[in-house]
Design a protein around this nucleic acid. Sequence first.
DNA 1: GTTCCTGCAAAAGCTTTGCAGAAGA
DNA 2: TCTTCTGCAAAGCTTTTGCAGGAAC
Lengths: 138, 138
Amino acid sequence: MKTSLEVLKQELLDNNIHLSHQRLKVLEYLIQNHNHPTVEQIFTDLHKDISTLSKTTVYNTLRVLEDAGLVRVITIEGTETRYDIEVENHGHFKCKSCGKIYDFEIDMNVLSSPDLEKFQISDKDVYFKGICPRCSQH
Amino acid sequence: MKTSLEVLKQELLDNNIHLSHQRLKVLEYLIQNHNHPTVEQIFTDLHKDISTLSKTTVYNTLRVLEDAGLVRVITIEGTETRYDIEVENHGHFKCKSCGKIYDFEIDMNVLSSPDLEKFQISDKDVYFKGICPRCSQH
DNA sequence: GTTCCTGCAAAAGCTTTGCAGAAGA
DNA sequence: TCTTCTGCAAAGCTTTTGCAGGAAC
């Protein structure tokens, strides 16, 4: 999936979603920040530019983008929901020490199970936890 | 990993964890109910037997068991945290229609990525979402 | 003009924390 | 006895909801 702003804008229009200023800013933010931001991070950063922005709008927008299949929700830890522009074939690694989340490439197609023969699978998520190289040096 | 109560009790002792009545009940419950219960479900069901049980104790106990590596935390959806006795080599499928979570067998060993060469991996979780057979019939 | 979107305030969950009394070793 | 555990109440967070005003088409 392409992640350029133009392509995503077209996808929003295809889904009958208005291209409001706030929504475009959130989308732009996610394209430029592939660090799996929380709602808090998105809100705080965008609030610097758009002083009237409310957190509710960030929540609303993220849900709209999620429903349209443009962003992926990452709930690797229960307390914090994180968001990511949809990219195929990658998993998430969370460092238990520093808390940072890393992407890694992985072939989701090898993931199958005879148990799921009759299931319609629409999303595949792979989450690893452990210690990242930077933390294991210390 | 064996999931018999005796084996798990020994593991608790090995971890210097007191075998209180409440803790044993929670553990027993998880062994008998492999349906990924939420805190609410565990509390409600156990409350019938132990009328003095508090939700705080359920939270405390689950954290203790989690730290000891006896239970796995499932955060397939942000709003609800679910718990499971630790069993190797299985993933979780959540039905988007009925919300039920299914286990499925999967070989975690095929899951690797050159990106993670220098990472210490301690947990591997695989979450699928989609529609289960029962819901796709309707 | 109608529909959809924004953002404030309030509410609703879920989870954690502080602490006094109880239980266990 | 001394440490650990329990459970009540309160607080803390994140997320959702209701609604009035505003923007988009």
